[in-house]
Every structure is written in structure tokens, then in C-alpha cells.
């Protein structure tokens, strides 16, 4: 009972998270959501009795890819405008209000 509740909530969260990763306007938010997605994906692989894949997902999906995306984001933004992402974040949300 509890086990199937865990599995169902995990599945639903994964789909919801994937949706937000794909539709997010802010790239930084998408990257952070992707890191979280990797973590939940590793949990799912564990529940699917595939610890090998869970290990690879934990190392690649959550650790390496996250660092790679953050670094790529930095390169993109600094190349385009020499401006840090954080400022754009704050100013844009202020503007939206």
C-alpha cells in the first residue's frame, strides 16, 4: 500500500517535473529542475530494480550534466551580454509585477 503510493507519487512527480523542464522560460530554472529530475529518475531506477542504471544516472544525470549545463549557461550569457543570470532574473520579475 505505502510502497505503491510511493511509486505512484514518484511517477507523477517525474512527469510534472519533465513538463516544467520543457516549458520553463528561464533557462536557469530549467537547469535546476533538470538536476532534480535526475535525482528522481535515479530513485525510479532503484525502484525498477536497476541499480546499475541508478548509479550511472546518479553520477551522470544529476552530477556531471548539472555542472555542464550550469557552465554552458554561463558561457552563453557571458558571450551574449557579459551579464550574470541572477541580475536578469531579479529585474525581470520586478518588471513583471
Amino acid at each position: 500500500m505505502v510502497v505503491s503510493a510511493f511509486d505512484i507519487i514518484l511517477c507523477l512527480t517525474l512527469v510534472w517535473l519533465a513538463w516544467h523542464v520543457l516549458t520553463s522560460q528561464d533557462l536557469f530554472k530549467a537547469v535546476v529542475l533538470f538536476i532534480s529530475f535526475g535525482l528522481l529518475m535515479a530513485l525510479s531506477w532503484v525502484r525498477l530494480q536497476a541499480p546499475d542504471v541508478a548509479l550511472a544516472e546518479a553520477a551522470i544525470g544529476s552530477g556531471l550534466t548539472g555542472a555542464l549545463f550550469l557552465s554552458a549557461l554561463r558561457r552563453m550569457t557571458s558571450h551574449r551580454r557579459g551579464e550574470r543570470r541572477l541580475d536578469c532574473d531579479e529585474v525581470r520579475e520586478d518588471e513583471g509585477q
Binding site: 541499480p51 546499475d52 548509479l55 550511472a56 553520477a59 551522470i60 552530477g63 556531471l64 555542472a67 555542464l68
Partner: peptide, 25 residues
């Protein structure tokens, strides 16, 4: 450890390589 564990349980070259890569990063 993952490399050594890979012959009898989960783990193996790719997982160990990913961890080494993370150390390099």
C-alpha cells in the same frame, strides 16, 4: 570501489569512470 564491485554486483567501468570524471570536473 565501484570498479571492484562491478564484477559481482552493480557498478562497473562506466559508473566508476563517471565518478572519476566528476572528480576531474
Amino acid at each position: 570501489y565501484l570498479l571492484w564491485a562491478g564484477s559481482s554486483q552493480a557498478g562497473g567501468a562506466f559508473q566508476a569512470g563517471a565518478i572519476l570524471g566528476a572528480a576531474g570536473v
